[in-house]
Amino acid sequence: MAPWDLAAELGDIVAWAIYLLIGFAFGFILESAGFADARLLAAQFYWREIRVIQVMFTAILVAMVLIFWSSALGWLDYDDVWVNPTYIWPGIVGGLIMGVGFVFAGFCPGTSLVGVATLKVDAIWFVAGAAVGIISFGETVSFYNDFWHSGFLGRFTLQDWLGLPTGAVVLGLVVMSLLILWIGDIVRRRIYGDSDED
């Protein structure tokens, strides 16, 4: 039953090869969707482009449905799937910082690496800036350690928060997301007119 410790089951070399393949596929798809272009990424925030939202939401919804169907059929132990523990207050502050940086720079960390792979200068500067930020954080976190660990809620999922069965949460998210994508596209066309996104 998944999840599997690939390194223990298949050996380090095979496990690393699989990780490399997954990473390659991920980067390939991001680049194919145009996510290496900072102008396209920044345009999401002005609702001129919704490609990022369409691609990411679709990926998240498909992954979510596959994960929970796998769990329902006994192929995957969902309780053993790593969910980042929730630290609510640093999460909110960190999200704000990242959101502002995303709009300013037109990249998030993952897409900046995609941009670097295609030698985009703005992506290279973004990655350099991110590296400086990461090092600075590491060197200063001891000064705000209490805040960094505040609001700990552990493994906290939507179904825990809402107190609803997993299936209801999944269905609700799918319906809500599809509505957002549909309405968002209508609004975008109304404001900016029809445009050929492809």
Partner: peptide
């Protein structure tokens, strides 16, 4: 069609449900 398929899968999941501990034990 993609959206309909996703919706159908999610609705099926809501109906089928997740395994209870006794069912999970059988799986494991």
């Amino acid at each position: 069609p993609g959206a309909m398929l996703l919706l159908l899968a999610a609705a099926g999941l809501a109906w089928y449900g997740q395994p209870v501990p006794a069912e999970k034990w059988e799986f494991m």
